[in-house]
Simulated scan of single mutants.
Amino acid sequence: MYRLHFTPDAASLAVRLVLEELGQPYEARLIDRAGGELQSESYRALQPLGLIPVLETPDGPMFETAAILLYLADRHGGIAPAPADPDRAQFLKWLFFIAHNIHPTLLQLFYPDRTAGPDCARQVVDHASTRMQGFLSIFDRMLAEERPTWFSADRPSLMAYYLGLLMRWLAAPGARHSFRFPPSDYPAIHAVLLAHEARPAAIKAAGAESLGPTLFTDPA
């Protein structure tokens, strides 16, 4: 059985969503973030940078969100093209587009001080906002033109759960932030996220972490 180290509404939610979609049994272990567990020796043995998520698997502990999701897809099937599938190359290309462009740019928006210090935070946010707009527009246009089966409203997709989590944060970042990227601005993405947040796996995961029913498209 898997063991997911999590905090509510963190990157671990993407892993929980996929585990629920796959119907895999797992233990969800709440991290004592306020108590400093992320800096503890025991947690750093699982995740050397002290970040979330960690999934303990039969093959050892896994970290990095995209790596965990791809591992689960390859191990259990059904939520991504298999390694021999002709669609695999396109799927991998866009999965890593999200992991290496959208996800880190989101972190720059939320934590600009980490990128260039507090004196340059405004410039970091402005630059990251422009980049984020470009990345989301590129992905949305690709969906509208290519209509890939591995990111559609008709079947569950690990990539939709991953991007859905990121869009959740971008849609309602909080009063202290000046940026907002509602999924409704990106029609092709929005249609897929609407379908995925209505799936039983998403409803169950949202309930487990006390999140609202419109998990991706209109977060509370």
Rank of each mutant, 00 (worst) to 15 (best):
L46D: 08
V54Y: 05
H76L: 12
F97M: 07
P61Q: 14
I52V: 15
A80E: 10
Q90R: 02
F97K: 01
K93L: 09
P58Q: 00
I68Q: 09
A66M: 13
A82C: 05
F91T: 05
F96R: 01
A67D: 02
F63K: 03
G60W: 07
P58H: 00
A45C: 06
R88I: 04
D87T: 00
L95H: 00
F63P: 08
F63Q: 13
A66E: 13
W94Y: 13
F63R: 12
L72S: 11
R44E: 14
R88D: 09
Q90A: 09
I68T: 06
Y43V: 09
D85T: 03
T65W: 05
G78W: 02
D85I: 02
G60F: 06
Y71G: 06
M62I: 08
D74H: 13
G50M: 06
G60L: 10
K93N: 09
A45W: 02
R88A: 08
F63A: 11
W94S: 11
L55E: 12
E56D: 15
G78H: 05
L46G: 08
P86V: 08
L46T: 03
P81C: 05
P81Q: 05
H76Y: 14
A45Y: 04
R44S: 13
K93P: 01
R44Y: 09
A89P: 08
A84N: 11
G50A: 07
I79T: 02
L49V: 05
A73S: 15
G50W: 03
Y71N: 08
F96D: 11
R75D: 12
A82M: 10
D85S: 12
L49N: 15
